[in-house]
């Protein structure tokens, strides 16, 4: 019986019919998705922190408003994704508990510090840019709630990407100091952005199953290549240099060749040793703990109000 269910499930996937929350699904499919979606949701809200810390320092009013709106969008993405993940049988609070305990991961990129205003440009351009590469295929993911959440997310991410690139462009057309700021940001954010696509294909054990389930449509290395191919001409327009001595056009492949990623650094950051891991997690835990009395009071008030309403109704009925 189990085998037939699984066969029918795979058949639906092969026919590109979306899986919905009430449909039967293999336990491993559910777990894989839950891990991926909750991790994605955590990345959105932890990702608010490095940019959020520039809101009070944004250089002019237009940029301040745009940055506020952008960071707010990321909170919205977190909301959509937590909701999608909840359909798989875990509450938002349970997911957050796993984030706070360190059990759940989030994208390593957010464990790097934002040092200058140019980082707001580089993050939008490269980090949101890499996120889009990863996420556009997820709009067709086999799980319905995830795919639909990603459609909304992707629209906003591409806006963020353009906004970030525009910050870079303004800096690169500005004073020599501003241009140097832009170059420095590219230097610091390039390689961590490249790491956002995950380990090389020959080192990515879960990819085959995810591909079969149509949670994953392109391999890590395919997406990374696409990111490089798109980013190189963009950097040329800016007039700044991608920090990779091995970067060159390969006529035969029709792609850019690029250097080897420092996976040691990647693994260290994943293991909690990045420059801001502790600080980011602490910020999330503090927000949660400092907000506990607020959440408790909101629940207590709602209960009181409900009780009063019932009392009034009873009185009226009597």
């Amino acid at each position: 019986m189990e085998i037939n269910l699984e066969e029918a499930f795979q058949k639906r996937i092969d026919e590109e019919i979306k899986i919905e929350p009430r449909d039967w699904m293999p336990e491993k499919y559910r777990k894989t998705l839950l891990r991926q979606i909750s991790q994605h949701a955590h990345s959105e809200i932890v990702g608010m922190l490095p940019e959020g810390n520039w809101i009070t320092r944004a250089p002019n009013l237009r940029r301040k408003v745009a940055l506020l709106a952008k960071v707010q969008d990321e909170a919205g993405h977190g909301l959509y994704l937590y909701s999608a993940a909840e359909t798989l049988g875990m509450t938002r609070d349970e997911m957050l508990a796993e984030l706070h305990s360190g059990k759940a991961k989030y994208s390593s990129i957010f464990n790097y510090p934002t040092l200058t205003w140019a980082d707001m440009g580089a993050i939008g351009w490269l980090v949101d840019g890499a996120a889009i590469m990863n996420q556009v295929p997820l709009c067709r993911a086999s799980y319905g709630p995830y795919a639909r959440a990603m459609v909304r997310v992707c629209k906003e991410e591409s806006f963020h990407q353009r906004q970030g690139y525009e910050i870079m462009l303004t800096l690169c057309q500005g004073t020599p100091e501003q241009k140097a700021m832009a170059q420095d940001a590219l230097n610091r954010w390039w390689w961590p952005s490249m790491m956002m696509f995950g380990p090389n294909d020959d080192n990515s054990p879960n990819s085959a199953q995810s591909t079969k389930w149509k949670i994953k449509r392109f391999s890590n290395d395919e997406l990374r290549q696409k990111f490089v191919d798109v980013s190189v001409p963009q950097a040329e327009i800016l007039g700044i240099t991608i920090p990779d001595a091995d970067l060159k056009w390969n006529e035969a492949r029709g792609h850019y060749d690029f250097g080897v990623i420092n996976w040691d650094e990647f693994n260290q950051v994943v293991a909690g040793n990045g420059p801001c891991n502790k600080q980011r997690l602490k910020a999330r835990v503090d927000a949660w703990e400092n907000g506990a009395w607020v959440r408790e009071a909101a629940v207590a008030y709602a209960e009181k109000r409900e009780k009063r309403k019932q009392n009034t109704e009873n009185t009226n009925a009597a």
């Binding site: 608010m48 922190l49 959020g52 909170a75 927000a287 400092n290 907000g291 959440r295």
Partner: peptide
């Protein structure tokens, strides 16, 4: 922004 007691109120 990013530090609210609950995501909806942060927004």
């Amino acid at each position: 922004c990013g530090h609210g007691p609950v995501l909806e109120q942060d927004i």
